[in-house]
Design a protein around this nucleic acid. Structure first.
Length: 595
RNA sequence: GCGCCCGUAGCUCAGCUGGAUAGAGUACUUGGCUACGAACCAAGGGGUCGGGCGUUCGAAUCGCUCCGGGCGCGCCA
């Protein structure tokens, strides 16, 4: 079993430190030893700035300290040389056999290459809940949701690969006003189909899918849900002039909508629930199918309504009240979130007795903690950032460990078409659906496009560009490297087992040695990407790896006469293919053998 | 007004727990298929890392400030 070079180098430096600067080698004042892979191959395989860091503390010349550290460095079979460079860097060049051994290690580990060493996984894996998308099931998912879906799915896979026991969860907001608005919108379209004209409110859901659901209701239930227009409109304030957009007009439109909902519930009774249920299941299954096609799978679909039905919301509010975190003002119950750093206190229960969304969200988080996860990750749209302090505050107020919760914010995707910004609203029915985008550019290109930038980076999404340049997507560049290797392997036609026995010392060109270094970096990329919740790092790494492979492919031939050299190069190619595959699985992108 | 995210090549973006001449793709120019897949490669031009001040041996990276953009600041969800 070979020793990890980075671990070995750290050990060597620690020993040298004991001689050179014992006061910084003890556990208490330990100097952190940072080893990085230099960009410039002339700087070796690893470099450390340890001497420069020490120089500051000891007020000594960094190059002199570097020289002393190098002199005290114990010998190791892994290290070919350690040299001082620049202002005081110590550059390490690994022994050739140590460098190429990663090829054999990769082939031996196969799909597991890149996972943390089993030695580090001391006990059972830590449980983590990743909650993402969680879009209101009030219409088709749009390209903004797609970003959250791609990021969340890739992050979940990354964490799973990095050794976590991951549960993926979608929080279904099936209890709120938005669902009532969707239900009433569908009912109004249904009434239209029976020539019962009550006027469609501008703040109802406008999309065509609402008409589709209305037609389903008509086909299944006939006239059962029809009511006279006068009864439907009874007591509503009516709609203000369509051209007005002042606050009073907006309020009136919302009141009109609420009155329609109230009338629907009153006139239809249990049938209202049937309509509500129908539109919910219809939209949920549409979204679920869409996501599954996108390679995004959830283990749990968690119902907000269930939090009310089981009484958890009430229990939660009681608990906060007993702990003295609530007070009553203007008839409503407020949570003292300012005590936890929020800018203002928040209502949990309205004057009319109805709990706010915030109340159910507190209950939801309590439930998450009670399910025993070691860590919770919420992936939210960036517009929710102001929401974080109150949720974290409530968690603390309930006596739960707030540090277990991480909120990863995904910035909005700003859509452009013909150089103009497109505003998207689900209610207004103006949006580009995720499904359309996927069909237009393909799932692989879509997944890769989304994950090719940091989640907290704003995303300018030029639809025309995405469509016209879909064949330029870097995903094909990586897939092409994989397919090329598959093709060479097929032409070779030998047994994969033979590659395990290859004499890797025959890998000698600078490109080949650089590639082995790249392969060796994969586990480090996985570790830091997982730690920083940044799957995009995997995507960039794969792009780099594919680039180095293509350059090598064009410079050297694999299927050469020299049998030993051929096997060594094929082994390297096979290892590259394996790492590409392992990385692409994390990103949810396929690896075709030919394309 | 306050809070969060951001400003890097013509365009889209990496790099940010301080490190070596600031990188990639794309676009543009030029060259490479009688050898394993040219969806590829090689070479070239292109930068006050938004501006300024500061900390440091060293700043795209940290701090302050200004400019510019996005988002948030409901008894909505």
């Amino acid at each position: 079993m070979s020793v990890d070079p980075k671990t070995e180098l750290t050990r060597l430096l620690q020993q040298a430190l004991v001689s050179v600067a014992p006061e910084f080698s003890s556990n208490a004042a330990a100097m952190p030893i940072l080893l990085e892979r230099p960009r410039d191959p002339a700087h070796g395989d690893f470099a450390t700035n340890l001497a420069m860091q020490l120089a500051r503390l000891l007020k000594k010349n960094p190059r002199e300290l570097a020289a002393r550290l190098v002199a005290e460095l114990p010998l190791s079979p892994l290290v070919q040389k350690a040299e001082i460079a620049g202002a005081g860097f110590i550059n390490f060049t690994l022994d050739a056999s140590a460098r190429v051994s990663v090829v054999a290690a990769t082939l031996a580990a196969g799909a597991a290459y890149g996972r943390p060493d089993a030695a580090f996984a001391s006990s059972a894996p830590q449980k983590v809940l990743v909650e993402f998308v969680s879009a209101n099931p009030t219409g088709p998912l749009h390209v903004g949701h797609g970003r959250g879906a791609a990021y969340g799915a890739s992050l979940a896979s990354l964490l799973a690969f990095a050794g976590w026991d991951v549960t993926r969860e979608y929080y279904v907001n099936d209890a709120g006003r938005q669902m009532d608005i969707l239900a009433v919108s569908t009912w109004l379209r249904y009434l239209e189909a029976f020539e019962i004209q009550v006027g469609f409110p501008p703040n109802g859901y406008q999309g065509d899918y609402v008409r589709v659901m209305a037609a389903q209701l008509r086909d299944a239930r006939g006239e059962r849900y029809t009511r006279p227009a006068a009864a439907v409109l009874d007591g509503t304030p009516g709609l203000p002039d369509a051209t007005r957009d002042d606050a009073a007009a907006k309020t009136q439109r919302e009141q009109h909508l609420d009155a329609l909902i109230a009338n629907g519930k009153k006139l239809l009774g249990e049938d209202w629930n049937a309509i509500h249920q129908h539109v919910l299941t219809e939209q949920l299954s549409d979204g679920r199918g869409d996501l599954e096609e996108f390679g995004v799978h959830f283990e749990v679909w968690f119902s907000e309504k269930a939090l009310f039905d089981t009484g958890l919301v009430a229990r939660c509010v009681d608990q906060l009240e007993k702990a003295g975190h609530l007070y009553v003002q203007d008839g409503a119950k407020w949570f003292k979130s300012t005590a936890f750093g929020d800018e203002k206190d928040r209502v949990v229960q309205r004057e009319n007795g109805i709990y706010t969304y915030f109340a159910s969200d507190i209950a939801y988080h309590l439930n998450k903690y009670e399910r025993g996860f070691d860590r919770l990750i919420n992936i939210w749209g960036a517009d929710h950032h102001g929401y974080i302090p109150r949720v974290k505050g409530a968690i603390q107020a309930l006596g739960l460990e707030e540090a277990r919760l991480d909120v990863a914010l995904v910035q909005f995707a700003v859509l452009y078409s013909n150089g103009e910004k497109i505003s998207m609203t689900t209610r207004g029915g103006r949006f580009v659906t995720l499904r359309d985008l996927r069909h237009e550019v393909g799932n692989d290109a879509c997944r890769f496009f989304y994950v090719l930038r940091k989640a907290d980076q704003h995303l300018d999404f030029d639809l025309d560009l995405a469509k016209s340049q879909s064949s330029d997507n870097p995903v094909y560049y990586i897939q092409y490297a994989h397919a090329r290797i598959c093709s060479v392997m097929n032409q070779w036609g030998g047994e994969a087992a033979a590659l395990q026995e290859a004499d890797l010392s025959r890998l000698e060109t600078s490109r080949e040695l650089a590639l082995t270094g790249k392969l060796a970096a994969f586990p480090e990329i996985i570790a830091t990407a997982a730690q920083e919740l940044a799957p995009h790092q995997v995507a960039f790494y794969l792009k780099d790896l594919a680039a180095e492979f293509h350059a090598w492919y064009n410079a050297e031939r694999m299927l050469v006469e020299d049998e030993a050299l051929k096997l060594a190069r094929l082994a390297l190619a096979a290892a590259i293919r394996q790492v590409i595959y392992n990385g692409m699985v994390i990103l949810g992108v396929s690896c075709p053998e030919n394309m």
